[in-house]
Design a binder for these strands. Structure first.
Lengths: 146, 146
DNA sequence: TCTTGAACCTATAGTTGCTAGAGACATTAG
DNA sequence: CTAATGTCTCTAGCAACTATAGGTTCAAGA
């Protein structure tokens, strides 16, 4: 049996975060010691590792909740898990494309700066001009918290 | 002149968000109508569009503040602008690198999905086992909200 | 001109995903 | 046995919004 500290160490998650996950129902309430301290087993460790890993990949907690509920019912189709992952992939690619545009502009600015001219900073134009957008601003596709 | 609603529509930003940006000093207080309603011009529109795009790229508001200062003070010393731009470029490249690693792993996860049942779903399995990761994803560099 | 309804105003509280503190109890090493 | 460390609950704070309440202004139609 693991104390909360050992569990956090094993899964790479901070202690208050574990208690937070319990509070919001992502982790089931564990058994307690005689002195009321949480005691975890292997299943909790696996579940927490899963959550951590998914968080690192940018899945929001609600998506993780869905994924966990999927794995609790192993006879169902994989399609739901697949679509959650695909949505995450699409969001990731969209971000990369935008960041490349910004990278190019910052490089250009720094190059000009080397020549002593910063009076024509076009960062705002590059990032601010709606017309230069490659992607539609579909609010439904807007990035959620990660 | 644009009312706050029209401005929000034009820039793709919700009205309360605009007021919030003003409150924290990202947008200057605009002129007001006789009846105390905010009135914005073209510059405010460009600035807001810039903020929105930068937020979509995952820049924290503090970084956006720095980027805006590049265009707010075009005659400031080249050294200051250069260091801000370089810092943002480094941050941008780090984000790109990380997102590409995530992209690769998500692709791999999805590619392995045999469209069977959850019990042999690779997505769930990969998420549960960090050892299957080809890429290290440093939790300290976890993606912030975007 | 009057009226109605949408858009605006301020201020406050709630959201997500944590993180940090306070003050008290439990466990463990020496 | 004692001191140090770990844990407990609870509350408050962070970023970056978002929503609500209760009131005011504006633009357009009758």
């Amino acid at each position: 049996m693991l104390t909360i500290g050992k569990l956090g160490e094993a899964a790479g998650v901070k202690v208050p975060t574990i208690r937070y996950y319990e509070q919001i129902g992502l982790l089931p309430p564990p058994d307690r010691s005689a002195g009321n301290q949480r005691l975890y087993g292997q299943r909790a460790r696996d579940r927490l590792a899963f959550i951590r890993h998914a968080r690192e990949l940018g899945f929001p907690l609600e998506a993780i909740r869905d994924l966990l509920s999927l794995s609790d019912r192993p006879d169902q189709s994989c399609a739901a898990a697949d679509s959650i992952a695909r949505a995450q992939l699409a969001a990731t690619r969209a971000r990369i494309a935008r960041l490349r545009a910004l990278e190019a502009e910052l490089e250009r600015m720094i190059g000009q700066c080397a020549h002593g001219t910063i009076s024509d900073c076009r960062v705002i134009e590059v990032l601010g001009d709606h017309a230069q957008c490659r992607h539609d601003h579909d609010p439904a596709v807007a990035e959620p918290a990660a």
